[in-house]
Nucleic acid binder design. Structure first.
Lengths: 202, 202, 202, 202
DNA sequence: CATGAATGAGGTTTCATTCAT
DNA sequence: GATGAATGAAACCTCATTCAT
């Protein structure tokens, strides 16, 4: 019962390390198995192929993050409906910011993989995908605010640099708490930009 | 003398295509040579190895871009010395913006390679390198403006999202003129942010 | 007791399909088990190894066919003893022909396997074996006919093309009844050839 | 200049042996290369893949045989035009028979491969293909003989057993001269059957 | 300037088989 | 009866690189 997960987990751990060190293409399954102390056959019992192994590492955290974002946008829409003017929008995003950053750092390696080792993978455009996801959440949010519409291109670009901001910090700051502090400031600035640039009075 | 360059150039062209399609690691020298109509031996006459071939493609455009940036910052410093307050800073960056965008699109493939196919290459951190280059240009620029200093972290981050903005547009907009128009707007907004956020009164 | 046979039978059915599709060497036990909804361990409970599994499919029908042939030749010998000249030999082989063809088509897949998927198997020379079996039945049959002897080589060759005739029709005609009609004609022609070519007056 | 062909030829020779011994699927390229004293890379310089290596062995002899057949049928048609009745057909096929048998025995191994080791290969149905080729040559031949038509099914079947006769002898008789003697007799019998069974008076 | 040949190491994947549970 | 885990060997193939010619 304990052994059940041990080999699989050991493989995932070693794969994580290998992928981080060498990138997806150059990572060697042989090497991963050797480090995990099993034969390649064992790997293929647990994972269909190289890509499935990679997915097993990055997919759960990625889905977790997407879940957090989806839930957040749903809450935001509800909040928006009770608001009369953009000036009344709650500018404090500390909570959601901390939750996201916290989640990312709990799965730091996986997210680093998604940022650096996805060449020739289904995850090649993962950043763009998340950006799209965020973009799709904007219209319903803005629809809740009467008398305003969204500048589509600016909204798209703001979504992108918001993500970029996260990525930038994640890549360069290994300490969670410092990352949180930095991102709180940046996020607030970005949201301000959003309101000022992407939101257009009808 | 003509043939001399022909084979070399043909190799570079085919390599460009291969690297773009498959990424650095998965690109095959054999395949490149086959497309160029020569054997691998010929390739090794012109280029020391795979990495040198890649460098031959991306290095000249990269250096060209760096040159443009360096010259621009030098000019900017001179301009700055004649200025009394941040309010007098020239906010119109159309010219430099167009020059950079134009240059990038003249070497579109090479810059795409630098953005997408540098895993396991000396160019892995090319974006960060350019960011650093820009950052190093800020202090002397700011030093020219008496009574002001720079918030280091904000400056770093602004450098980054400025680059990100370029990258974002380059990746998604294939038409040069449209790219120019978009980036002019974005750049002006970014410079404003720079002045307002990164510049601190002593 | 029912389940007992169910798994075994399911394995045999799936194996039949796999062997037919991929041939013996390329057939995958894993794939067979997956289709049967069991694990490889289960397969090894019922069958000693790959070859035993193959044998379990083709052996019973093959033995059945051999039995039919043996019985037929025994009957033929008895018939022969009551005959004075080759001209009195009964030329109508409709009954035995239909019985054989019927039996083969009842086990069509198994016989197709024996004809197409026996590389690296004990059954590699199954056709030659059956030919030999038939050949061994000729002398006692001929011995019953006084004053005649058999041209050994011609007898061997006639045995072979007789088998080939069956094989040829089996391979190309999927409809039983059509196969029967065709083989009746062919067989009669062949038996004629036998009498005329292989049988030699002493 | 001598070495040029040596490696390639050595590979072909060793491959021939390996394919004959183990069949196509179980033949190991590693083993072939080891016997040839080169690395697998060398093999892949000369041959695209396993199948291409196999083809390099069997294709030239196969095409040679096809050429002999094609030429023979063309000559036969010309001969036929000068004939009034089937009784005048030249029944002596010694020459063509010897030529074919001779050619086959000059490339004995290749033809054995085509008969025994083609599972999962483009040559899987090579026998049927040759049969078809022969069949397609019959109508124009018969068209040259006024007042007669061909029983299609019988013709098909006669083509098949003619081929089978060759195959049968090839498989079991290793001596060329003995094979020739046997096949002359058999062929003459078969041609007789053709004229008597497949040829129908209008 | 370029070819053609070859290396040697390594890649991912698949396989039949085993065995404790 | 059957599972799930694992082995170990081998499979085909591709690669960057070298070098005599």
């Amino acid at each position: 019962m304990q052994d059940e997960k041990q080999t699989r987990q050991k493989l995932i751990d070693c794969a994580k390390k290998e992928f981080l060190e060498k990138g997806y293409a150059k990572a060697s399954l042989r090497s991963i198995c050797a480090n995990a102390g099993v034969t390649t056959g064992a790997l293929y019992f647990f994972f269909e192929n190289k890509e499935a192994l990679f997915a097993a590492i990055v997919d759960p955290p990625l889905n977790g993050l997407k879940g957090i974002l989806v839930r957040h946008f749903k809450d935001d829409i509800e909040e928006m409906s009770g608001i009369a003017s953009p000036d009344d929008i709650d500018m404090d995003h500390t909570e959601i910011c901390d939750r996201i950053v916290g989640y990312i750092y709990e799965n730091y390696d996986s997210f680093m993989l998604l940022l650096t080792a996805t060449e020739n993978t289904v995850y090649e455009n993962v950043v763009d995908d998340v950006v799209s996801m965020i973009e799709r959440s904007i219209p319903p949010m803005m629809a809740a605010l009467n008398g305003y519409t969204v500048d589509e291109y600016m909204s798209h670009w703001m979504s992108h640099i918001s993500i970029d901001a996260f990525i930038h910090v994640i890549r360069h700051e290994t300490d969670v708490e410092k990352a949180k502090i930095r991102l709180r400031a940046i996020l607030n600035y970005l949201v301000l930009g959003w309101v000022k640039l992407a939101l257009v009075k009808e």
